[in-house]
C-alpha cells in the first residue's frame, strides 16, 4: 500500500538530534551503544545483570515516546502499511538480519558510523541498498506495494 507523505525537515532534524543526544547520554553514563536491536535482543536473552539496564532503557523509550506523542500528536495518523503475512515475514527478516549483521539503523547507522566503524558503514550501505531495491520491486515492478 503506497501512502504519500510530506517532507518534514524541521521535525526530522529535531527528532534526529534528540536520538543523537540519547546515544550520547548512554555512552557517557554507562559506556553502552544505543543499538535498539541489540538492546531488545539482550533484554530478552541475556542474564539478569546484562538484562536490567536494557529493560530500563526500553521502559524510558516507551515513556519518552508517549510524552512526545501526547504533546505533538505525531502518532495520531500512524498505521501499518503492510498485510499480516508481510508483517510476519518482515519481522522475521528484521529479527534474524539484525542479529546476524550485528545491528540496525541505530547501532550501525548512528552509533557505528559516528565511530567511523568500517563494519557499520558497510552494513548501513547494504541495508539502505537492499531496502531501496526491495521498495523498487514491490512498488514499481509489482505495482502498488504489498
Amino acid at each position: 500500500m503506497v501512502v504519500e507523505t510530506a517532507f518534514t525537515p524541521v521535525t526530522a532534524i529535531i527528532g534526529g538530534a534528540m536520538i543523537g543526544l540519547a546515544a550520547l547520554v548512554l555512552m557517557w553514563s554507562v559506556g553502552r551503544i544505543a543499538g535498539i536491536s541489540g538492546i531488545v535482543a539482550g533484554a530478552i536473552l541475556e542474564a539478569e545483570d546484562e538484562r536490567n539496564w536494557r529493560l530500563l532503557f526500553l521502559a524510558g523509550l516507551f515513556v519518552g515516546a508517549l510524552i512526545a506523542s501526547v504533546i505533538t500528536g505525531a502518532l495520531d495518523d500512524v498505521s501499518s502499511i503492510a498485510s499480516t503475512p508481510v508483517l510476519i515475514m518482515a519481522g522475521l527478516l528484521v529479527g534474524i538480519g539484525t542479529r546476524m549483521g550485528g545491528g540496525c539503523t541505530s547501532g550501525h547507522g548512528v552509533c557505528g558510523i559516528s565511530r567511523f566503524s568500517q563494519r557499520s558503514i558497510v552494513a548501513t550501505a547494504v541495508f539502505m541498498a537492499s531496502g531501496a531495491a526491495t521498495v523498487f520491486v514491490i512498488r514499481h515492478l509489482f505495482g502498488e506495494g504489498v
Partner: peptide, 11 residues
C-alpha cells in the same frame, strides 16, 4: 537516554 530516544523517534 531511553526517553530521549523514544521521544526523538516519535518527533
Amino acid at each position: 537516554a531511553g526517553a530521549l530516544f523514544g521521544a526523538g523517534i516519535t518527533v
